[in-house]
Simulated scan of single mutants.
Amino acid sequence: MNEVMEKTEALIRKPINQPDEVRTFLDDKGRLSVFGVGGCTLGRGEFQPGWRWSMHVKPMAGTDSCKAAHTGIILSGKMCVHMDNGEEVTYQEGDAFYMPPGHDAWVVGDQPCMLIDFTGAEHYAVKH
């Protein structure tokens, strides 16, 4: 990140088209734009049709399932999340979500899934 702020005594503005970092998924199936804002790390995820965590992020993460906890909002499209324990939910545009660690996920349908992640972006899709 360009900056880490321990105090938020100043106003901060970061245009969505100027992230601090962009992490591209394998096979060009999307990307995570990462923003450091007021001591928080936010992510704007763009997941293309055909994207699946186990195919396009797992090789970078080096874990059997996603170990990040994600809290956010689906801006457009649909994403299905399958937990290691068998639970499964499909999120769609307008849904707020929480995805605990231990899951796979994939885009549903032929439209990209766009989301904002408030809690899981700091270490997501980082090559190990």
Results as ranks from 00 to 15, higher is better:
113 C>M: 15
15 P>C: 01
41 T>F: 09
94 G>N: 10
40 C>K: 14
76 S>R: 11
106 W>C: 11
38 G>S: 04
15 P>G: 09
47 F>I: 10
40 C>Y: 14
112 P>H: 09
111 Q>C: 00
52 R>I: 06
5 M>E: 12
83 M>E: 06
21 E>F: 00
125 A>E: 07
21 E>A: 10
9 E>L: 12
108 V>R: 01
33 S>I: 03
52 R>D: 07
19 P>V: 00
105 A>V: 00
50 G>D: 05
70 H>K: 03
83 M>K: 09
94 G>C: 02
33 S>A: 13
114 M>Y: 13
77 G>P: 10
25 F>K: 07
66 C>V: 02
1 M>Y: 07
91 Y>H: 07
10 A>L: 13
29 K>G: 03
31 R>S: 14
30 G>C: 09
109 G>Y: 06
74 I>F: 10
120 G>M: 00
102 G>W: 03
104 D>T: 02
96 A>Q: 06
45 G>M: 05
12 I>N: 07
126 V>M: 05
85 N>Q: 08
107 V>D: 06
76 S>K: 12
93 E>P: 03
20 D>Y: 08
123 H>R: 14
54 S>D: 05
121 A>E: 05
80 C>G: 06
127 K>V: 06
69 A>C: 13
90 T>Y: 05
4 V>H: 14
80 C>K: 15
60 M>H: 12
71 T>A: 14
98 Y>H: 13
40 C>D: 08
55 M>A: 14
114 M>S: 04
107 V>P: 08
61 A>S: 15
42 L>T: 01
119 T>P: 09
24 T>R: 14
56 H>G: 02
2 N>C: 05
120 G>D: 09
35 F>R: 01
76 S>G: 07
46 E>L: 12
112 P>E: 06
9 E>W: 09
44 R>G: 01
85 N>W: 02
43 G>W: 08
41 T>H: 08
38 G>P: 01
61 A>E: 13
113 C>S: 08
69 A>V: 14
45 G>Y: 04
15 P>F: 11
59 P>K: 08
103 H>V: 02
18 Q>K: 15
41 T>G: 05
11 L>S: 13
127 K>H: 10
90 T>N: 02
3 E>Y: 06
128 H>R: 14
27 D>N: 15
75 L>M: 10
108 V>M: 04
22 V>R: 11
19 P>E: 06
74 I>W: 03
38 G>Q: 07
61 A>H: 04
27 D>L: 02
29 K>S: 11
104 D>L: 03
94 G>A: 04
76 S>P: 03
78 K>C: 09
112 P>A: 10
92 Q>P: 10
82 H>E: 14
41 T>V: 15
41 T>S: 09
117 D>I: 08
81 V>M: 07
41 T>I: 15
64 D>S: 13
22 V>T: 15
85 N>L: 07
89 V>F: 08
86 G>S: 05
29 K>W: 00
95 D>H: 13
71 T>C: 12
16 I>L: 15
121 A>P: 05
26 L>M: 13
17 N>C: 01
99 M>H: 09
78 K>V: 03
31 R>G: 00
49 P>R: 07
13 R>N: 11
8 T>G: 12
16 I>E: 11
46 E>I: 11
34 V>K: 08
76 S>F: 01
20 D>Q: 01
90 T>Q: 05
61 A>D: 11
113 C>G: 08
125 A>H: 07
46 E>R: 03
84 D>K: 08
120 G>P: 00
19 P>Q: 00
94 G>W: 00
62 G>P: 05
97 F>P: 01
80 C>M: 13
6 E>Y: 12
